[in-house]
Design a protein around this nucleic acid. Structure first.
Lengths: 302, 302
DNA sequence: TTGCCTTATGCTACATCTGAGCAAAAGGCA
DNA sequence: TGCCTTTTGCTCAGATGTAGCATAAGGCAA
């Protein structure tokens, strides 16, 4: 029994810190993720992804992990072959060379994911979410709870790695332009944030969710930093990824007691205050213990 | 630009507890995972997986999540189309109906993953692993450390969810029959355990790794239990999955303080000792808090 | 019936981890 | 010199986790 012929497409969510902001590599307008079909010459899916990103953006990738495989009927196909999209998450540093394509601030694409400041991008849509929750009698209780948990309302804690769930809820409630026409609301009621081609924003959300979850149990942050850095830069990076602030002293304690970094001996005087020591990542820990990430000291009170 | 035509195949790792042993649903001899191609009639990859498992084994699946997508060149293809395999992890209960195919004890397939008893299936191959580690001068230090960490030797802690890494290391060191001929050892030196068709044992290892990781942060164990159960049954199930023993009293406390279960009022007298209360899973917690799994109270001393 | 076996269940002592905050160090700058 | 900044060191209480003791409640054999 041989199956339907399909084409396999690779999609890459490539993340880097650009000017202190977590950003994703995109092409064109509306922005789209680097992508390309699997060709006979490609040894593996991962190799194919590297090849396409390099070819389309002129950048070499370091860290790369598989995210998810999509093949829903509603994805737009090329010709008659059903497209299967295998998505990957890549981490890199912006580097010197301009390359092709641009770095797009991911909080411009998913503004509600940034909770570091008090001005929450959600305030505008929160009433619409509540309205959606109560629009169907039978589902009201369930929907209310789902909204509250997913967006951290009504006393529920904000959970940073529910990125995908939040996007999907906005999609279902017609608050993003990607939502199917029958669910959509007047433009004035849309959630803020730039859209991307097709369902690429959904794939981005998948990547962001994975990344946020992963920094908690694997030392992947360092893939995004320059070889040496101050603890403040490390903290800024983690905060930017997690989209929330952490307790500085406790963060430092966690990093140090896990022996994730070692001093270089240099100091960085451009801090505006007391100069900061520079550190480098102890690559050996990748071997020493396969576990241990950058744990986030959370805040009990919100 | 349109890509190479490929076929998409679905592969299912379906897990259930059968007679107290975690088992995987297989077909034929050598055992193989339920699998089938993606057809035009399938709405999604997940739906296709359900359909094939049901068609081939007569069993309906409950919980189902995507595992990983494989497309390496060395996977055997049907005809000229390159096969892409999307694997899924399913959880179920064995049920009454016989169905087609059989439940294979997964520790018969991957014996070294069971560390509940003192007789470790690894003892036999450990010397061969050390020999492999020291067989190449240049890589010796690195390999030694990798072996020690992956298999919890030389003072390193055994890490339950390194299932895939362990299989891959055995594969690379030629200690499983699936290893390429040029790496293989005399049959006498092979690691114990029944093999499966092709690379299915590797896919199984991927599933087991995911499952072990997941029981720690999502309440998925309950998918494998009957509707009501005693705390001992729950603990046995968790221990069987994790492949290691836990501290009974602390396990109970964790379960209770997380309010994962509620008493049914019944008691089970077939315990051999004091009768045990029966509990049921509070399905509501799936909504209440999206987090919270079955945390494992570990043992510091080994 | 009694005593001993088993497993279930309750509870305590102790170590470690975590969240929160105080305070000193060390630079720049008015 | 005094005040601003950021970095760094440290304390302290509450939460969480580990380990083990003790009791409850059944079956079973002497």
């Amino acid at each position: 029994m041989t199956g339907q012929a399909v084409t396999a497409e690779l999609l890459a969510v490539v993340v880097a810190m650009v000017d202190g902001r977590p950003s994703v590599l995109t092409l064109g307008e509306p922005p789209r993720l680097p992508a390309g079909p699997l060709l006979p010459s490609h040894r593996s899916l991962q190799a194919a992804t590297r090849t396409w990103v390099e070819e389309q953006t002129g950048r070499r990738l370091g860290y790369l992990e598989q995210l998810y495989t999509f093949a829903d009927l509603d994805r737009e196909g090329v010709g008659e072959l059903r497209p299967i999209s295998v998505s990957y998450l890549g981490l890199t540093t912006p580097g010197e060379e301009p390359g092709i394509g641009g770095w797009q601030d991911w909080y411009a694409l998913l503004p509600w994911e940034d909770t570091r400041t008090d001005t929450c991008a959600l305030d505008a849509v929160a009433p619409h979410l509540r309205h959606w929750a109560s629009s169907e009698r039978a589902l009201e209780a369930e929907r209310r709870q789902r909204v509250a948990i997913t967006f951290g309302l009504d006393g529920h804690a904000w959970q940073p790695d529910l990125v995908l769930q939040r996007y999907e809820l906005l999609y279902e409630s017609g608050l993003v332009p990607e939502s199917p026409a029958e669910w959509r609301r007047p433009t004035a009621e849309l959630a803020p944030g730039d859209r991307m081609l097709g369902d690429h924003r959904r794939v981005l959300a998948t990547g962001l969710a994975r990344l946020r979850a992963k920094i908690g149990y694997r030392p992947v942050v360092f893939e995004l930093l320059s070889p040496t850095f101050t603890l403040r830069q490390l903290q800024d990076c983690v905060e930017a990824l997690a989209g929330r602030a952490v307790h500085t002293q406790n963060f430092r304690r966690l990093i140090e007691q896990q022996a994730l970094v070692e001093e270089t001996g240099e100091v960085d005087a451009d801090t505006g205050g007391r100069p900061a020591r520079r550190y480098r990542f102890r690559r050996q820990v990748l071997q020493e213990r396969s576990v241990a990430g950058t744990k986030l000291p959370t805040t009990r009170s919100r």
